[in-house]
């Protein structure tokens, strides 16, 4: 457990006045407050550090203790125990604000014991718990159908339903699975952001799918039937005679499921890429030359 330089965190000198500390804290808190930096983990971490530094330095007793022991804070507890035998310790019972509970470093917990924080009013204010953010990586095929999945968040197993058609980067809210409320307040919410990885040969744009299919020259010229893959199986396509390279056909309702619209699907767009025959035999060449002459 490393020593934390609270003065450095707040950017103030060791002989800073209470007003200097308050000013520095306010300035940094406004910059890194989680409400002003939603979903920014770096800002959240920084805010916790600032909060912790302020908890120590803005409280005369805590600051004195911190200044006295400094880097030798590990001996503080031992000293305090001896001291307690001679004098009564005054305990300060305070209410906690949303970002104070369980937000202190091990260093803080060891030196000052449990958490404490100042708040307005009587100390019985109820606060919602902190919202938690998590990321879940899924394969594209995993989100083709609605399914249930068990996640472990803060050592708790949560079974959630992942609706079909969820988008890459989309966030869903699981109500009440965030941090515990303070003073009987409601729990925070859990926000899960989905990262969808596509390992399939289909390209996805919202609920439409795109696929490029090879088409041999003869089928392109004369027409015929072709089996093509869809996301959940195969379909037989009728190829029109004289189909040009790059022609796109739409297979209605064969795309990706529409998010939270059960039974509705986007479309599948198939683009034909005509494959020319290779390694022609002498006989084939002759036939092609004859065809060429017919065209002239």
């Amino acid at each position: 457990m490393a020593f934390i330089d609270y003065y450095k965190i707040l950017g103030v000198s060791k002989n800073a006045t209470e007003a200097d500390i308050k000013k520095a804290y306010r300035k940094l808190a406004r910059k890194y407050h989680p409400d002003l930096n939603p979903n920014d983990k770096v800002a959240e971490k920084k805010f916790k550090e600032i909060n912790e530094a302020n908890e120590v330095l803005s409280n005369t007793e805590n600051r004195k203790k911190y200044d006295n022991y400094g880097e030798h804070w590990q001996h503080a507890e031992e000293y305090e125990k001896t001291k307690q035998q001679y004098q009564r310790q005054n305990s300060n019972q305070r209410a906690s604000s949303q970002y104070s509970q369980a937000d202190f470093s091990d260093f803080f917990e060891n030196m000052f014991g449990g958490t404490s924080s100042r708040s307005r009013g009587s100390g019985q204010v109820r606060f919602r718990g902190q919202d938690f953010n998590a990321e879940l990586q899924l394969d594209l095929k995993d989100v083709y159908a609605t399914h249930k999945r068990t996640l472990t968040v803060n050592n708790k197993n949560i079974r959630i339903t992942i609706p079909a058609g969820i988008e890459n980067g989309q966030t869903i809210k699981i109500k009440g699975h965030g941090g515990p409320g303070v003073n009987g307040g409601p729990n925070g919410d859990l926000y899960i952001q989905f990262s969808i990885v596509n390992h399939s040969k289909f390209k996805r744009d919202k609920d439409n799918l795109y696929l490029t299919v090879d088409l041999d020259l003869y089928k392109a010229l004369l027409g015929g039937e072709l089996m093509v893959d869809t996301f959940d199986g195969k379909v037989k396509l009728n190829i029109k005679p004289e189909t040009q390279n790059g022609t796109t056909v739409k297979l209605k309702g064969k795309g990706f499921p529409r998010y939270k619209k059960e039974g509705q699907y986007g479309d599948l767009y198939i683009t034909f890429q005509i494959k020319l025959p290779e390694n022609l035999t002498a006989q084939e060449k002759t036939h092609f030359q004859e065809l060429q002459k017919l065209r002239k």
Partner: peptide, 13 residues
């Protein structure tokens, strides 16, 4: 409302 409270009372905005 809670967010506004925090910003107003904690950060003096």
């Amino acid at each position: 409302v809670e967010k506004m409270m925090r910003l107003h009372y904690d950060l003096e905005i």
